[in-house]
Design a protein around this nucleic acid. Structure first.
Lengths: 128, 128
DNA sequence: CATGCTTGCAACCCTATAGTTGCACGTTGA
DNA sequence: TCAACGTGCAACTATAGGGTTGCAAGCATG
């Protein structure tokens, strides 16, 4: 436990037991970090499923911008696409959100433990 | 980074009851989206408290880069700084992590409910 | 006091990415 | 078949952000 995340481990490689979810969580965080993408998701959850063209009508950006964002969201697993005739419909997937929430909670707990331990050690040293 | 979901509701404005945490969560998400920042936090949690100079020795980036990242993390409430003589020590704060985890979990639940409702409505309509 | 660390500020590069526009392709339906 | 609509691809702009280097200023200890 001397070092942690020196090379490139995303932090929590030793914390979250869900190794497979790490990279997914990273993608989710990055996806959710953008305001436009959050609006997009919000609109999608609101109306259930929609095409990029329709969504572009709800947001202050072009259809192409929407498509790009949807692609990012799809990579993060937050949306899924399905062809419907000549148009493509997108709908939201809440699962990665939940996974990320768990990951964060787990990480938070790990930090808490570690920091408390450090604090105790420091006080003991000072007391000694 | 300067604004916080001004135009559209940040997604979850109707979901998370913790209004005070919304903007904080956004900052946390943005902060955690960067790999270097995650390494930084990991190192900080590992060694308890450290100066930017020390941290720069552990990461493959310059001290100035570390300082910038620490500033972002400080804005997100994930680290705190304290002067100690001629140097500045930083230490991690797990609280915003926990808050963000709760926010995400809450949002996930809201989505789930909403999406299930939509699905049911769609099936009813199709059945009708 | 003078030297050595450490911080702080500023200017600067460079890549990633959010955004745009234009056009070609495929699908639908009259 | 042909017009209309939606998607997909490509080129392009611009800005934010991660990273660097250099130097001035502050504190500590010989």
């Amino acid at each position: 436990m001397t070092n942690s995340a020196d090379t490139g481990q995303p932090l929590g490689a030793n914390a979250a037991a869900s190794n497979g979810g790490d990279q997914s969580v990273e993608a989710v965080l990055a996806a959710l970090a953008d305001p436009t993408r959050r609006q997009l998701l919000s609109a999608l959850v609101d109306i259930g499923q929609a095409s990029a063209t329709l969504l572009a009508g709800r947001l202050p950006v072009s259809r192409q911008a929407v498509v790009k964002h949807l692609h990012v969201l799809e990579t993060a697993g937050l949306v899924e696409r399905v062809r419907a005739g000549r148009e493509v419909l997108y709908f939201a997937r809440p699962d990665p959100l939940d996974a990320s929430a768990r990951w964060l909670a787990d990480l938070s707990a790990t930090w808490d433990t570690r920091l408390k331990s450090l604090k105790r050690a420091a006080e003991t040293t000072a007391d000694d």
